Amino acid sequence: MAKGDRLCFGVDLVTFFHPGFFGLQSHDAIIEHARAEPHAFWDKILDGAEASGVTGVELTFSPFNWQDAIKTYGSVDRFGAELTKRGLTLCSGFFAELEAAGDFTQQEAQRAIIDKAERYADFLKACSSDIMVIGAPLRQTLGAQPAIFHDFDRAKVIADFLNRLGAILYARGVRLALHTEAHSIFAAARDVDLMMMLTDPAYVHMCPDTAHIIVAGSDPVQLVDRHHERMIIAHWKDAIGQMPADTQIDEHIHDRHQAYFCGFGLGRVDWPAWIRLLRDRAYAGWAILELDAAPDPVRDIANGLTLVRQALLPVYR
Rank of each mutant, 00 (worst) to 15 (best):
L90Y: 04
R279A: 13
E290L: 06
R111F: 09
A36S: 13
V14T: 15
A81K: 15
T89W: 07
P137V: 00
G53K: 09
F161V: 12
C262H: 14
S26F: 04
Y316V: 05
D153Y: 00
V174Q: 05
P208H: 11
H27K: 10
G20K: 10
D200Q: 06
A136P: 15
W66Q: 04
A187S: 14
F9C: 12
A96L: 14
D191N: 03
F261R: 12
Y203I: 09
N303Q: 14
A171L: 07
Q242T: 13
E37L: 07
T60C: 15
L83R: 00
C262P: 15
Q107N: 06
H205Q: 13
Q145T: 09
G241Q: 08
P146V: 03
L307Y: 13
A282P: 00
E50P: 03
E229T: 04
G48L: 03
D130R: 11
D255T: 14
D219K: 08
A96V: 11
K44H: 01
V224N: 07
F94M: 12
T60E: 05
L266R: 13
L83C: 02
H254V: 13
W236V: 12
F264S: 14
C207K: 04
R256S: 12
D296V: 07
G74R: 11
L124Q: 10
P244Y: 08
